[in-house]
Design a protein around this nucleic acid. Sequence first.
DNA 1: GAGAGCCTGGCG
DNA 2: CGCCAGGCTCTC
Length: 280
Amino acid sequence: MPELPEVESVRRCLEPRVRGALITEAQFLDPRSLPGDCPAKARAWVTGKTIEGLNRLGKYLVFHLAGGHYMVVHLRMTGRLYTMDTAESAGLVKLAAVFRLDNGTTLCFQDTRRFGTIYLGSDELFHSIGGLQRLGPDPTASDWDHRAWAAQLQKRRAPVKSLLLNQQLLAGLGNIYADESLFCAGIHPRRPGSSLTDADLRRLASCIRSILLDAIEHEGTTIRDFRNGYNQTGSFQGRLQVYRRTDQPCRHCGKPVEKLKLAGRSSHFCPACQKELPPW
DNA sequence: GAGAGCCTGGCG
DNA sequence: CGCCAGGCTCTC
């Protein structure tokens, strides 16, 4: 569910409400969200620690805790992380974890499909979490070296859509924004990375950046499950051009949007605006 | 590369 | 009932 803009929206909501706060009480209600840790041990570990800051690395949220400790959260498909006033939080059901803070805030972690994960530890976490240690560059960073990224893609024969989903090459795109970026750049999702010209990749890099930044401004896309750090929906769903618009007219040329399966995921594209023809 | 698996719930 | 879903990992 959450891709870079959704995770960033969560981070921006939460950061001012958790920074500087002490965790006075924690409950881990679903052991599956704690790979390698047990709930009792995790509870004792986080209780009494102060949250010094909240960063984002790709789709990971990183809580910086006093003493060089970290709590890293990945929301996967249906995870929600939001705050509410502790007074309002009584009787909440189906939470995977709850944290009470000394500033009167309660931080809730909810996850219908239970793929989401919470990792606790020190510096070694960044090596032990497989997806975190080899994370590619962040396309929303002002110093993103898109030319180096483009050169990597041109070395691969895999479909460009699969390459966009590979977090080792670029951190933050998921199925929605990969499809939207390819439409914006006029590139068919099945084109091999090695077939992309420098001009294609300059266009694609520019589309990725502008779409992600625009989606952050709109607090992300809510198809069904996504909620920001205030437990509210985003609004970028109204601006989608192809994602989940199969058989509906392309907003640019009117031809019906098509769908194909790539890397086990649906890919939505306009057959006229995103041609897959020789010379590829 | 592709496919299965991890889970739950909504939809046709 | 079967299919599908915003992510990621692991096996063939």
